[in-house]
Nucleic acid binder design. Structure first.
Lengths: 233, 233
DNA sequence: TAGTGGTCTAGACCACCGC
DNA sequence: CGGTGGTCTAGACCACTAG
């Protein structure tokens, strides 16, 4: 049962989508220009542009000036992951969030992070380990290095009421970042926290954020066994 | 007074971004309406709208009709994962891609998939197992159920030159999908393929795609030990 | 119900780039 | 060079929703 589209540019997008999916326009083929489509649909060129721009963002068509718009040959799957503050993620599951800071000290950045997280030589970082619980069940283990030069106020940040995770989101804006997703085996420490056997496969998210050229923080978040990160595409 | 810089929506976005990052506008605070900003920047309201729409897409501001635009309190981290065809992912790493179909048979859908992948009762699915190699090193293990009712032509699809992965991308359009990312321990079969110990932590991506209400395919892709999925935010 | 964002139009100029 | 998409404008009407 089709729902009537509320506005024009989404309707046009759906019609273009239909022509692509039903091979009216073959993969790799050039499609009519914006002006032609605008005339066909009886709307302004801006409206067609909006629809085509949306399709280009999802990778379904490739647009180039002068060359025109082509249907992508191998349209990539694009998934947008929204990674909220840990507290909100826990509460979204209907659980109560609680966190405990188990370690908080100034220490030099470990060598294996120097390449990805180039703080000035000799500079120290704030290292923190935080346990996050959902309804008193272990949920996530967070290891974080924060560049004191970039966020000096962090030395006096309260970490009992609000987690460092949330404090940084609110107080340390970033411009770019790198994320990595992978799997590790639980070592003794993780096994103890998650109450699982050593060697259990765990899902890990690593994130490095920057404010311009200034590295802000490097965080590794290890989720409880069985965790699945989900998204809709 | 002549302004050298032409008004551009990206410039306006950067200025709005600056005001948010420098706390000119506090988190949670309402910011001026589009009309006011347009007057301030000396541009059309449409241009301000474009900039604000972009900020809203990244989650940095929350927009509501009548209520206005507010700075987000806990701006979520959003990461866009681009998941290309496996062959292209391997080749992007400078390696040669090769795949082997080790199993291809019609079988009923296993019970544990019925909830997430509701093919009609009694209907069969095409089950395939494919090994993907990068320069002859094992790269990925793919287990796939494909709904024969949705993609009947798949029964005669060639699977030697082009992998089922790529064939489906090119021939079976989808409208929506669900993805999940998690970690598992290698069982005996995976350990043999990846030449790693049983129990090694492996990164897994699962994807279910739909064309409207019609389920297309359910695929589980298990990556080689040490694999990291990366993205820039 | 009034105010705000969402969208559309008709026209214009510009940037890019294949030819 | 000329064609195409990218952007901007000034104005208009509409959709949603807080108060």
């Amino acid at each position: 049962m089709r729902v009537k589209e509320p506005n024009s540019w989404t309707q046009i997008r759906e019609e273009l989508l239909r022509r692509i999916n039903e091979r009216v326009w073959q993969p790799g083929e050039i499609i009519p220009g914006e002006a032609d489509l605008a005339e066909e649909f009886g709307c302004a060129r801006t409206t067609v542009n909006r629809a085509l721009r949306d399709l280009a963002e999802t990778g379904l068509v490739i647009r180039k000036r002068k060359a025109g718009t082509r249907v992508a040959i191998n349209p990539p799957h694009k998934a947008t992951l929204t990674i909220p503050v840990i507290r909100e993620e826990v509460e979204a599951r209907g659980a109560a969030h609680r966190h405990v800071v188990t370690l908080r000290e100034i220490r030099p950045l470990p060598p294996h992070l120097h390449a990805a997280f180039p703080v000035p030589p000799g500079a120290d970082a704030l290292y923190t380990e935080t346990l996050h619980y959902a309804d008193d069940r272990p949920f996530l283990f967070e290891e974080r290095y924060t560049n004191l030069e970039a966020v000096p106020e962090i030395a006096i940040a309260p970490m009992d009421k609000i987690s460092l995770n949330e404090w940084l989101v609110q107080n340390a804006p970033y411009t770019t970042g790198d994320m990595a997703f992978f799997a590790i085996s639980a070592d003794a420490g993780l096994a103890r926290f998650f109450e699982c056997p050593v060697g259990t496969a765990l899902y890990v998210v690593e994130r490095i954020t920057w404010n311009g050229d200034l590295p802000i923080t490097h965080v590794r978040m290890t989720y409880a066994p069985g965790y699945r990160m989900r998204t809709r595409i």
